[in-house]
Amino acid sequence: MSLKLLWEHLYIVICSEALAIAVGLPLGIICYLYPKPKKAIMQVVDILQTIPTLALLGIIMVFAGAGKITVIIGIALYSLLPIVRNTNLGLVQVNPGVKEAARGMGMSKMYRLFNVELPLAFPIVFTGIRIATVNAVGSAVFATFVGGGGIGFSIYNAIKAQNMGQLMKSTAALVIIAVALDFGMGLIEGSLHRGAEGKKKKGAHLSKKKA
């Protein structure tokens, strides 16, 4: 197992999460703003989650060919569920009094969304991103089957060669990445939640910048 594989692995995780956020966040907002497409979006996202990873990667490979792109798209699709769900949930559960006040004071729908609802929903949205990211670390192992590289490559080889030492090292690296990401993002999440409650911590600055 080399450092290159580790970077490859992280690269896949980061790219796929970026893609998942870029797609999932707007989808979550659409679910919140428009109840009609919500059901359809949620169902599609749910179904994506139930397809076995290898099968999904295989299907994508048909279109995107072997390589990192296939893995990144695949994991991004997997990550949609927690991100879309949490974005929608976070927006829905913003205090109704705050929402009504915002409406009653004459904020337009979009102004409300970007200046009140999203900043207040952000801690929960971030929780979704955290769950998705940690999951992605595990899913990215399958990259090796479609030529995407990453730590999966090292694990696969170790299994084939029955090299227990390498297997242990690779798995340990995987676990450490996952735990470190989870812990780091957990810290950010905690301060976001405190911020959303209005303490002079992070989170408050989200909307203050606008002020």
Binding site: N95, P96, G97, V98, K99, E100, A101, A102, G104, M105, V116, P119, L120, G195, A196, E197, G198, G203, A204, L206, S207, K208, A211
Partner: peptide
């Protein structure tokens, strides 16, 4: 507009 739930923006 003033409401019972007060509805101050907690992030401001």
């Amino acid at each position: 507009y003033v409401i019972q739930q007060i509805g101050l923006f907690p992030n401001m």
